[in-house]
């Protein structure tokens, strides 16, 4: 067995241990999830899960939604400038969280920007993406940016699953390390597909997110 294969196996084991011993206890016990329409989640890749983004916990919650056998197929797309900013975080993000780094700045051509994502979709992996671009204000749904439209232009047959989460911006908002337990609500939408018309597509996606958000009837967090 060669060295790189061995290290890949070791990473898989570490990832599994991290999920079993830290992520799942944290999300299921310390926080607690109320999931609606779990049956709508994709059973296999290729698929893209798009969600609103309020907290570092978002990715951990989305990963917990899927069964462990899909753990190694889950690929969160994350900002390279943030998650690769130091060697430890970079190692952790790439190997344990299994992220696909995305260069938010300084890339001229779109194709090269999305290469990592296309490769992952080719391998039938499930992409986790936050089209709001950043974590933003806690518990406020921002409009999705149209990057998702451009991404899917090259692979219009891949289904998109909108997911709305509430409560994580309360538990661990941007700019703090103090975790306060709050239940999180997760609403999973029906799969949708890319459309030629950019405005119509973005409008439809945003409308679906707002509809999911309304299912919970949550009040803004002041």
């Amino acid at each position: 067995m060669n060295a790189s294969l061995l290290s890949a196996k070791l990473m898989k084991l570490l990832r599994l241990l991290f999920s079993l011993c830290i992520v799942r206890p944290l999300i299921l016990v310390v926080l607690g999830m109320n999931v609606r329409h779990r049956e709508r989640l994709p059973k296999q890749g290729p698929a893209i899960v798009v969600a609103n983004h309020n907290s570092h916990l978002d990715t951990l919650v989305l990963m917990t939604l899927f069964p462990l056998r899909l753990l190694h197929q889950l690929r969160p797309v994350a900002a390279a400038d943030y998650f690769l900013r130091n060697p430890f975080l970079s190692w952790f993000s790439l190997n344990i969280m299994n992220i696909i780094p995305l260069n938010r700045k300084g890339v001229k051509r779109r194709e090269s920007l999305f290469t990592g994502i296309y490769e992952a979709l080719e391998r039938k992996e499930i992409i986790i993406l936050y089209p709001e671009g950043t974590r933003g204000e806690p518990e406020r749904l921002d409009t999705f940016k149209s990057g998702i439209y451009h991404l899917l232009k090259e692979c219009p047959e891949v289904p998109i699953y909108p997911v709305f989460m509430y409560g994580l911006g309360k538990a661990l908002p941007k700019g703090t390390f103090l975790l306060v337990p709050f239940f999180c609500d997760v609403f999973i939408g029906e799969a949708m597909y890319w459309q030629e018309d950019r405005h119509a597509f973005m409008k439809e996606l945003n409308k679906r997110m707002e509809k999911l958000a309304k299912e919970g009837n949550f009040k803004p967090w002041e």
């Binding site: 607690g32 806690p138 409560g167 309360k170 103090l178 337990p181 709050f182 239940f183 002041e222």
Partner: peptide, 22 residues
């Protein structure tokens, strides 16, 4: 803990009170 968490998740809380809840 479970009961308290459910209670604090149900009631409206203020953003400023995260530390108090902690």
């Amino acid at each position: 803990f479970l009961a308290l968490k459910e209670f604090y998740s149900l009631i409206p809380t203020r953003r400023a009170d995260r530390r108090v809840l902690f």
